[in-house]
Design a protein around this nucleic acid. Sequence first.
DNA 1: CCATACCGTTTCGGATGCGCAACGAAAGAT
DNA 2: ATCTTTCGTTGCGCATCCGAAACGGTATGG
Lengths: 123, 123
Amino acid sequence: MALSAQQTLELWRKVMVANLGRDHADLTARQFALLLHVYLTPPPHTVRGLSAALNLSKPVITRALDRLGRLDYLRRKRDETDRRNVLIQRTIKGSVYLREFGDLAAEIAAPMQPPPVGLVSPP
Amino acid sequence: MALSAQQTLELWRKVMVANLGRDHADLTARQFALLLHVYLTPPPHTVRGLSAALNLSKPVITRALDRLGRLDYLRRKRDETDRRNVLIQRTIKGSVYLREFGDLAAEIAAPMQPPPVGLVSPP
DNA sequence: CCATACCGTTTCGGATGCGCAACGAAAGAT
DNA sequence: ATCTTTCGTTGCGCATCCGAAACGGTATGG
């Protein structure tokens, strides 16, 4: 996948700008990373595991789950075999949200070919 | 640039997770989009112009500029031909920050080829 | 001149996030 | 049974962000 740093930045810019209009949620970078991680890596997911994988403190994970849970993008479920654990589960709404984001990004990435406008140095 | 929605999501996940460690700033999605926009689109940039281009209110732009200015990623300069305007200028530190981010993303994108782990539907 | 329009900033009240430390519940060890 | 460890959560104080409205400084038109 030949993708220069410049192209990647340009892609990132277009997707983020396009997403500013679409996104009703306005998630933090951490919250978004957490959401992506849960949906794209194999379960099970626990608070402790996410804390380690994302290098974030446990309270940060808990609060991100609060927010994503309020949005119904994610759900908590007690682990019945070890009731200390909390398993994080996906939801329909979260799947839709991420799939739309992925489609949006893919559409923007498609017509990108030649190296775009350069990142000029400061004056 | 053949890039499926799945691949894009996976790329996004890896970059965001990798960036959680590197990023000293923890920028908002809006702040990051603003930063990218200023560095990747041709000047001049004004508050009003950015507000329209990013579909954000003027106070949001002002506050983002406060934050990015404190970080020395961006600089304000009064327009001397029309002193009502404020021109937003790039800085060395901002250039370095974005270039490192672009390099990181490009490195992560490089080894991605086959369609990665699927986005499974919720249970 | 003076009125008007424009630009970016500030103020206000309220919501949200953070790090750190302490906490209760549950499991495991002795 | 009790002690210890592990789990996720919560309280605290502080910083940041938001939207809506009001504000002062600057240009422009009559």
